[in-house]
Design a protein around this nucleic acid. Structure first.
Lengths: 269, 269
DNA sequence: CCTTTGAGTTCCGAATAATGAAACTATAAT
DNA sequence: ATTATAGTTTCATTATTCGGAACTCAAAGG
């Protein structure tokens, strides 16, 4: 279980409790949450009750368990739909998937993590919340490294120490220095490689999605297995990927501001 | 724009503002929100700021617009995954989809509305209003009517006046009395029909998913077009649907037992 | 050039909600 | 009967939120 920090505002506290419930991957009893929460019993109790009455948590009377509520699914649908990238990227990702015959990912940064917004299997289209919404590490995935490499220096400096540098495979990058070096290379090349960094047998090539002003919007990748193909062959898709990234960026910028031809920006806090 | 109610707790207020932002289907300026919000300027301003620092809203500096943040997508993934129904229903829905060759929906009630949790397209592509996370009316959809019909009387009494009874097509049910009658029939039959109630040309047959104790858990449906098939032919799928519903309910209840909990899906992306 | 207008932001005393130790209930285990 | 465990309620204290009003800033109008 990850460390849990008290958030300042009332809303922050409530959201941190929501995250806590989410971090279990099953319905949880009050005490399960209490054990990992920084709040005293009564406080946690009240927060949970609030969240339940707001419909953002559900409480199962029979089992006395809390679980995330459907209101979140509704909100996330709106979030996904009104996010500038995901909906407009779909057709371009589909095209990429057909052209390459491999799995395509669309991701954005969520703090120091990679958040997958879409995934297209060569064979079947994948439903939204079963795959989209997953998070992964940034320092050892193709999309993650592609995005880190194109972050403004100050933001990168905040992200680098927050990476876990856990060794998943023999080829995982395990230190900030190694990562910094690789990011430099990626910036030069214009694409990032996943050399089975995260999962044995899984390789991928990724490019950032950059706005016209070269601000980071996200990343897309072609993923395959080392059994089926090689990094050398995957690299052949780089021009296709870069085309797609450019088109996605253009479409996203156009979509958000259809009546304007100024220079749009990525979203920031 | 729907009526907006002041929520009591601090969290409730924040969530209501979040809903407000979601109800626009594009990034919004401060004043856009202010116009439809029940809160004074300074209050709304502070709530929005909190939501942005919590990462649940994003603020675009250049365009001065707010949009829902990716943190919600992450939370919704957890919600979908840990909801007892959606993940365990997948295999059964896939089977149904193969058996029928038609589109399958899984839905739950979210207040007075229908919330779609999953959708499996048949090979043939049907254009219609539904995706995971989308909401629809309960009084004029197959899944909606199937669920309303199996609600406890007191809950039903709360839901019925909250329906909009808007006439989408000539065959839409437009009054509470008509709906009550139809629900009675549905309870007798054990299945609900959508006779192009909501969208012209779209027909469907739906059954509730009920727990052992006959508590409502959700609904599943087979949807098609009146061009391709007929209600009579769709009714032939009722036994399959009911089998699937029973199995989904059993699987969901089994999965809820704390002892038997494991992830029904692979966690790989 | 000055004034007006309206969106967005900040201030701060008053109003409100959140806090959490402790007491309490309910149920199960010894 | 006793102890332990999980969950719930109370209430005086404390911290946060509220929101009217005053402010900044930039653009529009005279």
């Amino acid at each position: 279980m990850e460390a849990v920090r008290k958030s300042s505002g009332t809303v922050g506290k409530a959201l941190s409790v929501l995250d806590l419930v989410a971090s279990f991957e099953r319905p949880v009893r009050f005490n399960d949450v209490l054990e990992v929460s920084p709040y005293p019993k009564a406080t946690l109790y009240r927060i949970l009750q609030n969240l339940v009455t707001e419909g953002v948590l559900t409480f199962d009377r029979e089992w006395q368990t809390y679980a995330l509520g459907v209101r979140l699914v509704r909100l996330a649908h709106s979030a996904w739909t009104q996010s500038s990238l995901a909906p407009v990227a779909r057709p371009h990702l589909t095209a990429l998937s057909r052209a390459t015959g491999e799995t395509i990912h669309l991701a954005q940064l969520d703090g120091p993590h990679v958040l997958y917004l879409d995934k297209l299997d060569a064979k079947r289209r994948v439903n939204m919340f079963s795959e989209a919404g997953k998070v992964g590490p940034a320092y050892c995935t193709g999309v993650g490294k592609a995005m880190l490499a194109h972050l403004p220096p100050d933001e990168l400096d905040r992200m680098l120490p927050q990476q876990s540098y856990h060794r998943f495979t023999p080829s995982t990058i395990c230190s900030q220095q190694e990562l910094t070096d690789e990011l430099h290379q990626i910036r030069e090349d214009g694409f990032a490689l996943d050399r089975e960094d995260h999962e044995p047998g899984i390789i991928c090539v990724a490019v950032p999605v950059l706005s016209r002003t070269r601000q980071l919007m996200g990343a897309i990748s072609v993923t395959s297995t080392s059994a089926r193909t090689s990094l050398g062959k995957l690299k052949k898709f780089v021009p296709d990927l870069q085309d797609a990234a450019t088109q996605v960026a253009a479409a996203a910028e156009y979509w958000r501001f259809p009546d304007n031809q100024g220079t749009p920006e990525t979203m920031e806090i």
